[in-house]
Simulated scan of single mutants.
Amino acid sequence: MESISLLMGEALSPYQVTLTPSGTHGQCLVTLKSTVGAIVVERVFNQVQFTDKRLLTDVVDGLHRDVLIAEGRLEPCVIAATRTATQDGRPAVRS
């Protein structure tokens, strides 16, 4: 678990990443703190997601998206619109 924490710390720098076992079904609480120690994002994941490279990439991507939303650099409605456009078969970005 410590090596996963280090990898996530590198991927999500400058945020401090803490992984804490949570629950009785293999969950893990992931906490991202700013450089001043304020909690930016907290999410619970199943530890299985840390054992597969593809699933771990999804976890990091999701946390990065959550950070962007928490900091106001990305609006949740933009994500919803992109998903809807992609599901409808339309290009996600139009020029």
Rank of each mutant, 00 (worst) to 15 (best):
R90S: 12
K33I: 01
K53Y: 08
S22Y: 12
T82P: 08
A80W: 09
S5H: 04
Q87D: 06
E42R: 14
L63P: 05
D52Q: 12
Q87T: 08
E2Y: 09
R54I: 07
I69W: 05
Q16Y: 07
D58I: 10
E10P: 00
T35I: 01
V60T: 05
V67S: 03
L19A: 10
V60M: 06
S95H: 10
L74N: 10
P76R: 02
V44C: 12
L68I: 05
H64C: 06
E71D: 08
L7E: 05
G72A: 03
A70W: 06
P91E: 05
S13E: 00
D61S: 14
Q16R: 06
I39K: 15
A70I: 04
Y15T: 02
L74T: 02
G23M: 07
T84S: 13
T86C: 12
R43M: 09
R65L: 14
V36G: 01
G62I: 07
Q27I: 00
T86E: 11
T24A: 06
L74C: 09
T51N: 12
G37S: 00
Q27H: 11
M8G: 00
V30D: 01
L12A: 01
R73L: 06
E71R: 05
I4G: 11
S5A: 10
L19M: 15
T18A: 13
P14T: 00
G37I: 00
H64R: 08
K33H: 06
G23K: 07
V78K: 10
T31N: 10
E2D: 13
Q87P: 05
S5P: 05
T24G: 02
S3L: 14
V44P: 15
T20F: 03
G26S: 08
Q16I: 02
E71S: 05
L32G: 00
L68C: 12
I4W: 15
T57D: 15
S34D: 02
K53F: 13
T31A: 14
G72E: 03
I69S: 07
V44F: 12
V59F: 03
P21Y: 03
E42I: 00
S13M: 04
A85K: 07
T35M: 03
T24C: 08
N46G: 12
V67M: 07
V36D: 01
T51Y: 08
G89H: 03
R90C: 13
A81P: 06
K33L: 11
R65H: 13
V17Y: 00
P91N: 09
L19K: 09
L6G: 08
E42P: 06
Q87R: 12
R43T: 03
G72C: 07
